[in-house]
Write a protein that binds this DNA or RNA. Structure first.
Length: 482
DNA sequence: TCTGGGGTCCTAGGACCC
DNA sequence: TCTGGGGTCCTAGGACCC
């Protein structure tokens, strides 16, 4: 190493505040508590206080499917997300099966309520949550239906508020009791508004960066509010197990344990070169985050990078069944892509062999298309390799997406009545000027693609007028390293 | 345990080009 | 033709997240 500049800017905890603006950011992470279950309680108030299990692929009376969300009451008896419903039923019998006349029936007092997922309804509720978030922060990143980061630096501050003995004490993890900040008050305001206006509870974490805010929102669930002011981030994270660091899953946790790295504090202090050897660039990055060092900006959620559908089936080698399944999945993916006004250039399949061997195959086309028949054709062609294979799950995916001719209107994905969305086609009001690639989709989804202006090779440096896709992409993928 | 569905990012190797 | 290096695109798989 012969570089002149210092290696990774290691800011000592609490020592970086002065000249570094980043240390003064106020980031909230809002995480809805068992969101699906909370939504069910919103419309079925009799579920309040009861163990609730929301199952995907679940049908009333059956024991198929998996747990999408379990309420905290259900978690207390061991029901977890992703658990097969059949297993959940062993831990938590179904209330509907309770029958006073049947000695074998479960005791109603120890039974839970099982309901199937109703995503449309949850999206409605999520929309109301988003309305609140929009109101509370200009810079937001919505990570999923029930989770978002807010940069509220321009709405509040880390200034310590006047002491008020009448107020409840600051959250336990917030450190010294005197550190009641304006940021905490603001976060409480956000949290209360969500509860009041959307009717569902949230946990909120507040910290000077995204990863610490994320951990903070998890630290006191449900209904939590945890504030980690600048200067106490490393101290807050240090005792937590590595698995609590965002990005550390079971495999990485195990690898770290082999290094003797058990806590976030260990991870922060670990030799980053060795981490890089074992984990690639992810290693040092996780170490920095564990140390409370995370410069990523809160960037708005970009456009999706892929769309897929998959479905489990009883393990089968039957070619007809597999082809039918893939055809149906292909049609669905293509329909969704069209609804969102998005073109795709790569079509792929996934075939899962028991027990859990994932195979993927993909093929790229010369240019982006919107062509359901082609999705099916390519998917079936890729599937041919697995004609003899026993599979338990099949999937179809389109990627290399191109939203060239759409605009923000469809971004949220909620614009229902979009059936005849051809109206904006070819309107060309986007001012995407010269040199940009255009795709002719005359009528509906002609697959012809042509290149207007420069050759593929030269288009990159003439990129001045390139479309918004570039920006979205760049930000999304560079976000980690900012 | 017989693991549901929809995503993201990263990595590694090969093809191809200059 | 060989050698070398750099860059990009594509595919497949892995890890992770919600």
């Amino acid at each position: 190493m012969t570089g002149g500049t210092p290696v990774a800017g290691e800011t000592l905890p609490g020592a970086g505040g002065g000249d570094d603006d980043a240390a003064d950011r106020v980031v909230c992470h809002v995480d809805m508590d068992c969101f699906y279950a909370s939504c069910e309680r919103l419309r079925h108030p009799d579920l309040a206080g009861e163990p609730v299990v929301v199952g995907m692929g679940y049908e009333p009376g059956e024991s198929i499917g998996a747990v999408a969300t379990a309420s905290y009451e259900a978690r207390e008896v061991g029901v977890e997300s992703a658990m097969p419903i059949s297993e959940a039923l062993e831990l938590l019998p179904r209330r509907a099966d309770a029958d006073p006349d049947d000695p074998d029936a479960p005791d109603p007092a120890e039974a839970g309520r099982y309901v199937p997922v109703d995503l449309d309804f949850y999206e409605d509720v999520a929309g109301e949550v988003k309305d609140v978030l929009r109101d509370c922060a200009d810079t937001r990143r919505e990570v999923s239906i029930d989770e978002a980061y807010l940069d509220v630096t321009d709405r509040t501050a880390w200034t310590v508020a006047g002491e008020d003995p009448a107020d409840p004490p600051p959250s336990a993890a917030a450190g010294p009791a005197e550190a009641r900040t304006l940021a905490e008050g603001y976060a409480r305001h956000v949290k209360d508004r969500i509860e009041r206006e959307a009717g569902v509870p949230a946990s909120v974490g507040v910290a000077p960066n995204m990863s610490a805010a994320k951990v903070a929102s998890d630290a006191d669930k449900p209904d939590g509010l945890v504030v980690v002011p600048p200067g106490s981030v490393a101290e807050f994270l240090a005792p937590l197990p590595t698995a609590d660091v965002h990005g550390v899953g079971p495999v990485t946790e195990e690898t770290l344990a082999d290094f003797g790295v058990e806590t976030a504090g260990d991870l922060a202090a670990a030799d980053r070169d060795r981490l890089a050897e074992a984990l690639g660039e992810r290693g040092p990055e996780l170490s920095r985050r564990a140390a409370g060092d995370d410069d990523r900006e809160v960037t708005p959620t970009g456009l999706p990078k892929s769309l897929s559908r998959e479905s489990a089936l009883p393990t089968t080698a039957d070619e007809g069944t597999k082809r039918e399944t893939v055809s149906a999945l292909a049609a669905d993916v293509a329909r969704r892509a069209r609804e969102r006004g998005c073109l795709y250039r790569t079509i792929g399949i996934k075939a899962v062999e028991p027990p859990f061997d994932v195979n993927t195959r993909a093929r790229s086309l010369p240019g982006p298309v919107d062509d359901p028949d082609l999705v099916e054709e390519v998917a079936l062609d890729l599937l041919a390799e697995f004609d003899e294979t026993r599979v338990r799950k099949l999937g179809v995916r389109v990627s290399n997406l191109d939203f060239a001719e759409t605009d923000q209107a469809t971004l949220g994905g909620f614009d229902a009545g979009d059936g005849r969305g051809d109206g904006d086609r070819g309107a060309g009001d986007d001012a995407r000027g010269s040199g940009a690639r255009t795709v002719a989709t005359d009528g509906d989804g002609g697959k012809l693609t042509d290149w207007v202006g420069g050759e593929p090779g030269s288009e990159d440096d003439s990129a001045a007028g390139d479309d918004e896709r570039r920006t979205a992409d760049g930000q999304a993928s560079l976000g980690d390293w900012s």
